[in-house]
Design a protein around this nucleic acid. Sequence first.
DNA 1: TTTCTGGTTTCATTATGTGGAACTTTGTTC
DNA 2: GAACAAAGTTCCACATAATGAAACCAGAAA
Lengths: 260, 260
Amino acid sequence: MKQGDGVDGTVGKAFDVLDQVAVAGRPVRFAELLEGSAYPKATLYRLLQTLTRQGMLALDPDLGTYAPGMRLVRLAHVAWAQSSLAPLARPMLDRLAVQTGETVHLAQLDQGQVLYVDKRHAARPVEMFSSAGKVGPAYCTGVGKAMLAHLPDAALEDALARQSFHRFTATTLDTPQALKAELRAIRANGHAYDREEHEAGIICIAAPILSQAGRVLGAVSVTTTTAHSDLAGLDRWAAPIKQTAAAIATAAEGWQFPQP
Amino acid sequence: MKQGDGVDGTVGKAFDVLDQVAVAGRPVRFAELLEGSAYPKATLYRLLQTLTRQGMLALDPDLGTYAPGMRLVRLAHVAWAQSSLAPLARPMLDRLAVQTGETVHLAQLDQGQVLYVDKRHAARPVEMFSSAGKVGPAYCTGVGKAMLAHLPDAALEDALARQSFHRFTATTLDTPQALKAELRAIRANGHAYDREEHEAGIICIAAPILSQAGRVLGAVSVTTTTAHSDLAGLDRWAAPIKQTAAAIATAAEGWQFPQP
DNA sequence: TTTCTGGTTTCATTATGTGGAACTTTGTTC
DNA sequence: GAACAAAGTTCCACATAATGAAACCAGAAA
């Protein structure tokens, strides 16, 4: 297992198990979880029972499989609505989506990964994986690289340490060295490209959302397919996307959660 | 407190606290939580610390306020994607939204409340967590009543016991008796109305999604404003909405999660 | 300074969770 | 349909991890 092993007592273990179920990507049986688990049979059993009773897991009574439960959806709604980026970025994303006519993403950096927190669909629906709550690699996506490029050194090293580089396509930058060179370039001209680095046929341009003080708050991207455009074509969105990012940054900056 | 008091040990307590933060509806300070909490100072403190370290809560370092954390959004994404209703209902909702040109909702019954799991709006195509994950009362919404109407007796009584009836508007049915009479009518003609019972100016028509065996899987609704239409006007969607519900039921019925 | 209020740490006590092993149920094989 | 295997559930002596009263600390207000 990668993290959190044994720390934070019983509660930590419970979340470990929850993650394990989520990470499976499909409903899983007890036995299957057991052989991926750090915990002994009885312990795992009791944890699953508790999580299920609490609504954090859903147990399919027929198949005996566990999946993340709907209570998480309730809680996530509140998390999203109270976060300091996604809710107030909505109008700006709307505008950018209309302006570009392409798919637009808003993402944050979370645990060294890209966490997509909002998206707008193009009129012309692009077939790809994405929506709020989805996570992706940081080192080979436009939003990911845009954010990494503006991280302080220590934070960058920490983020890099969490990556396990995988060569998704021929253009994937799969070494820290190659990535760091790219990050310098991104930092220099203020926006990042995804040159089919994560998925063949999918390209994008992305800009970081930076606070006044230079802290990375998130990133915005405009995505398209190679069938429909190319990198040079995406360049015409460089200015609008930066403007959008700036507008979101401004809105996020002095923002306070509205009182009732 | 309403539920889960003291059960399920430490993990249960942790989730209690998580709920308490979520239910506040805004970022809250330690002291504020303390005086709504069943737990003593030190215990609550440690629980908050653990939840924060785990990413389930986010602590604003400046204000010292807690809010639900982004890890929940990740998990909820998986929960949603693996649920047996929302993901496969998407194309049907799309169609209904286009057909009606109105706002369309998909909901489930969860803990006696209405849990919205998807939504379409004619103008604004896809907005994920802004509406998915939202909860509402069952006794005064179209989807809620549609589902309650088709619950087995025991389940209905259980659901009713969880309601605390509040008179939102002049038309709200705020007694079990009035509600039960309405449920009989709904059962008879297969669809439910919301006659501005939850919010003034908002009306809707809803149909339950029933499995072959008659089990309540969820509900679909078409919503509009009194400024724009009236109940009679909504009636023209009765047939399409029932057809949609049936289509979703069929899709959900023999559905298995796709293997990798 | 003193007095608050809000937040953090300590530590002896005990409740809580642990996990090996035994047991039961379910489903497969001959 | 008996015999076997695999998956799932319960037990219980034991150890760890959670408890919470009280003490402590920091900053704001008087």
